[in-house]
Amino acid sequence: MLHHQIERFGIVTRFAHLTDPENLAAVLTTKTRMVITETPSNPNMRVVDIAAIAQICRRVGVLLVVDNTYCTPYLQKPITLGADIVVHSATKYLGGHGDLLAGAIVARKEHIDQFRFVGIKEMNGACISAFDAFLILRGLKTLTLRMDPHCETALKLAHDLEGHPSVERVYFPGLDSHPQKMLASRQMRSFGGMIAMELKGGLAAGRTFE
């Protein structure tokens, strides 16, 4: 979307490694209107300091958007940490049963009204069905019951993978080897259920992995 769609409207996107907040300050200009980040990120599980990024955004008057899909509102609350807009893929943990496609946006009323009456009503028309909304509400009822076991299982699996002779590296915020474990401990309730890894042997090993 950032490369192939919005550029036709004259919007310029700059990319930065936001694990270091100073990298954001280096790319901001007087024309910057929005900063978008995801934490933990897909697929390398990097963690971004939401409060630090939010402080920079407030200082220069730009909106901060955080993709909170991996954490859900149960594990991480970006708005409490200073974000303006939070997005979720409700297809994943919020739905929880693999039977819907949906997304969710959380923001102040002034932003939600713009999304609804300009973005949805006048531009893309992407309205969720009533039944899919019902399925998300069903999933939310069991979110906390599901997320705790997800986190517990992922932590154990990450430790087991880290000790496996065929594994080169494991990316998981709950491991001592993760460079941002302390940050994750500070802004997340738990470390989530998503793990990434690299196999010894590189791409060839990945293609034959079972």
Rank of each mutant, 00 (worst) to 15 (best):
M123W: 11
M123C: 14
M123Y: 11
N124Y: 14
N124W: 13
G125W: 13
A126Q: 15
C127Q: 12
I128Q: 10
S129F: 14
A130V: 10
A130L: 15
A130M: 11
F131N: 13
F131P: 02
D132M: 13
D132Y: 13
A133L: 08
F134R: 13
F134A: 13
F134V: 03
L137T: 10
L137Y: 08
R138F: 04
R138L: 09
R138M: 07
G139N: 09
G139F: 00
G139Y: 05
G139W: 06
L140I: 06
L140K: 03
L140S: 08
K141M: 10
K141N: 07
T142K: 08
T142G: 01
L143P: 05
L143Q: 07
T144A: 14
T144Y: 04
R146D: 07
M147R: 03
M147Q: 13
D148A: 09
H150T: 00
H150S: 01
H150K: 02
C151F: 00
C151H: 03
C151M: 04
C151Y: 01
E152R: 13
E152G: 01
T153N: 05
A154R: 05
A154I: 09
A154C: 12
L155H: 07
K156D: 06
K156I: 01
K156P: 00
K156H: 05
K156V: 06
L157R: 06
A158C: 00
H159V: 11
D160E: 13
L161D: 03
E162I: 04
E162G: 11
G163P: 08
H164W: 06
H164G: 05
H164P: 06
P165Y: 07
V167M: 09
V167R: 00
V167F: 07
E168P: 04
E168C: 11
R169D: 08
R169W: 04
V170M: 04
Y171P: 06
F172Q: 01
F172D: 01
F172N: 01
G174R: 00
G174T: 01
L175G: 04
L175R: 01
L175V: 06
D176I: 11
D176C: 11
D176M: 05
D176F: 10
H178W: 03
P179A: 15
P179Y: 15
P179H: 14
P179M: 14
Q180R: 15
Q180G: 06
K181L: 14
K181G: 06
M182K: 15
M182P: 02
L183R: 07
L183P: 04
L183H: 08
L183I: 14
S185L: 04
S185H: 09
S185D: 12
R186A: 15
Q187W: 07
Q187I: 15
M188N: 06
M188V: 00
M188R: 04
M188L: 14
R189V: 05
